[in-house]
Amino acid sequence: MSKKGILLVNLGSPKSTKVEDVKEYLDEFLMDEKVIDYRWFFRTLLVRGIILNTRPKKSAAAYETVWTEEGSPLIFITERIQKKLQKLVDVPVEIGMRYAEPSIETGIRKLTEQGVTEVVLFPLYPQYAMSTTETVVEKAEDVRKKHFPNIKINYVQPFYNREIYIDCLAESIREKLPETFDALQFSYHGVPERHIFKTDPTKTCNLNDCCSRDSNPSHQFCYRHQCFKVTEEVIKKLNLPKEKVLVTFQSRLGNDKWMEPYTDETLENLGKKGIKNLAIVCPAFVSDCLETLEEISVEGKEQFMHGGGENYHYIPCLNDEDRWIEVVKTLCEERLHEFYLV
């Protein structure tokens, strides 16, 4: 009899806030060709010749602002999700990170040590992107072929358009919205525009009206479309007027053209446009991390206030909310059931 198991996969984090640990983490992260998609020589020149000589110290200082006694927020929140999920399912549940430890290999090994031969692997990203879902699947397949050739892996697909997720996200936002706000800003992690074109199998993307078409075969691979779709469905659930909602993209790196509008530039200009009371949420993340707790909650507030804003309210991610654990359970059990049908 085959034994099933679940592996929850998130981005990863440095093992500490020491500059050398942050540098090691950034090296693995930024040298991933799905993240910085230059040819190896130019990627190495950029990452190891420039970025790693300047960025680790700054990033280490940023990590120190969000680090807790439990360690990295992203890691311990993922661990909490794992523990809560384990109480709801009758198969082993482990976690793995795309970068650093516990790695995907470590997570799969822990499952195989419990006799697991069929793994449901859940990339904890609502939307599909080359630098998230795609790199997780590619890495997991490499690990499987190299170290665990006899196991089977079934992947949970991006769930940006699943009603159970939209309901969960909308209710979470509804409960945390301030009574009075002029606008609700949805800030998604940005990607270079070329990534959108690279993942489009139809080669018809124009980064314009194609995202809003009702039916388009590229939608299942288009991060931009999926971000707008999440926003559209959530504001329907919240019954908010479109003119009260903003969509922006954060965390850009380097001088390449990234998806627009940019979160930081938008925050700096909102006050001048009469937006004094702002709520902001980051639906590209299910777990709070450096990009939400420091970049948006702290830096974003400074940018908004400096531009003339008055009240700034960051809405936390789903984290380990019970309703979100139920969504994770449902999505995993669908894939577990497919194993039984084979």
Rank of each mutant, 00 (worst) to 15 (best):
K15Q: 05
K23D: 12
Y25Q: 00
D21I: 15
K23T: 14
I6R: 02
V19D: 07
P14G: 07
K18Q: 11
L26G: 01
T17A: 11
E24A: 15
L30M: 12
T17Y: 12
D27R: 15
L7S: 03
G12K: 00
K23M: 15
D27I: 04
D32Y: 10
F29H: 02
M31A: 09
K18W: 02
L30G: 09
S2W: 06
G5L: 05
G5P: 01
F29I: 06
L7V: 05
K3M: 14
V22P: 00
N10I: 03
E24T: 08
N10P: 10
P14Y: 04
G5S: 07
K15H: 04
K4W: 06
K3I: 13
V9M: 11
Y25R: 08
L8P: 06
L8E: 05
G12P: 01
Y25N: 03
S2R: 06
M31I: 14
V22A: 07
V22L: 13
L26R: 13
V19W: 09
L11R: 02
F29K: 00
M31G: 06
M31W: 11
D27S: 09
F29A: 03
T17M: 09
K4P: 00
E24M: 07
S16W: 04
V19G: 04
P14A: 05
D21H: 10
K18S: 12
K23E: 15
S13L: 01
Y25M: 13
D21F: 04
M31Q: 07
D32S: 14
I6M: 05
K3D: 09
E28S: 08
M31P: 00
L7P: 07
E28M: 12
K3S: 13
K4C: 09
K15E: 15
G12T: 04
N10W: 01
Y25I: 05
S16T: 11
K15I: 11
D27A: 02
L30P: 06
K4Y: 14
Y25H: 04
Y25V: 06
S2F: 08
K15D: 12
S2E: 12
K15Y: 02
E20K: 10
Y25D: 05
S13N: 12
L7Q: 10
V9S: 05
T17L: 12
K15G: 06
M31E: 11
K18G: 13
G5I: 07
L7G: 13
Y25G: 01
E24F: 09
I6F: 07
L8M: 14
L26N: 08
E20F: 10
V19N: 03
M31T: 14
S13Y: 01
E28C: 02
D27P: 01
G12F: 03
G12C: 02
K18E: 09
L30N: 07
G5E: 08
N10D: 13
K23W: 09
I6G: 05
K23R: 15
Y25C: 03
E20M: 13
N10E: 13
V22R: 00
K4A: 13
G12E: 03
L7I: 12
P14L: 03
E24W: 04
L7M: 08
T17E: 10
Y25K: 10
G12Y: 01
E24L: 09
S2T: 05
N10M: 15
V19F: 00
F29G: 00
V22Q: 00
T17I: 08
T17D: 03
F29E: 02
S13R: 01
V19P: 04
E20N: 11
P14F: 04
L26P: 01
E20H: 06
V19L: 06
L30S: 12
